[in-house]
């Protein structure tokens, strides 16, 4: 894990995750990070306890309405016993195979990848597999082959990248497994990976390439993003 840079979600973001107020794609990448990062899992636990406390101190008035009809209706339903609960379904994809090894996905990502991953080769040794999670974000697995380099690009909105395996570097530093990196439209960067790197990325708007021929792809890129969103909705 990168110790020089703060590669963890901000407290405010974890708090929104606790409350359930983030778009699903962001929830998914946070959930995956928490599974890989004990420090943030601890913070999540503390924030959740605080949230539960403030929630339970919320409206204190007991509702005076007569809910007997509603209650009478609910208690018609059978209760579950431990034996009724199926063991959590095995996802069909639980790991991703790379050149010489495989990586076991965090649980939520295994579930998200369950329908199968369709890898597409992009320029510069980058491979991308999109995952259809929600209509507000674009989620994808990115595999950077050893020695790969993405074109210099700038972000229009926010992008969260979670490093799952391997490492990549840009002008700010090197990122390793479990690192949680947020980029916004002030950042322009050109990630490279020497040893290869598997990431999960969530974008809330398309990238804009700022260098060389890749710039030509900008309109198409935006169009593709819109198309993805349209297909999902």
């Amino acid at each position: 894990m990168n110790n020089d840079l703060d590669c963890h979600p901000a407290t405010e973001m974890i708090n929104k995750y606790v409350q359930g107020s983030l778009p699903t794609g962001w929830n998914v990448v946070l959930s995956a990070h928490l599974e890989l990062c004990q420090k943030c899992r601890q913070e999540y636990g503390d924030l959740e306890s605080a949230e539960v406390l403030s929630w339970s101190e919320g409206p204190v008035e007991e509702v005076a309405n007569d809910f007997s009809d509603l209650v009478a209706n609910i208690i018609q339903h059978p209760q579950q016993s431990a034996a009724d609960i199926p063991l959590s379904q095995e996802s069909s994809i639980t790991e991703i195979h790379m050149l010489d090894h495989s990586f076991t996905l965090p649980r939520v990502l295994a579930k998200a990848a369950n329908d199968g991953l369709e890898w597409k080769k992009l320029a510069g040794g980058i491979n991308q597999a999109k995952v259809n999670i929600d209509t507000e974000t674009q989620c994808e697995f990115i595999y950077m082959s050893p020695g790969s380099q993405t074109p210099m690009h700038r972000h229009q909105g926010n992008e969260i990248t979670l490093v799952l395996d391997g490492s990549f570097s840009d002008s700010s530093g090197t990122y390793e497994a479990a690192d949680f990196i947020i980029r916004n439209n002030n950042d322009e960067h050109q990630p490279v990976s020497e040893e290869g790197c598997l990431c999960f990325a969530v974008l809330d708007s398309p990238l804009t390439f700022t260098q060389g021929l890749a710039r030509l792809f900008n309109p198409i890129n935006r169009f593709k993003f819109r198309k993805t969103i349209a297909r999902q909705s």
Partner: peptide
């Protein structure tokens, strides 16, 4: 609430709240 909203917005049902906030509410 999360699952209700996702259903309402017709989001794909590949992940549910119980995948995102792993609790053991259901298991023994």
């Amino acid at each position: 609430c999360f699952d209700m909203l996702r259903k309402l917005k017709r989001q794909p049902n590949c992940v549910t709240a119980d995948d995102i906030w792993p609790q053991d509410n259901g298991s023994e």
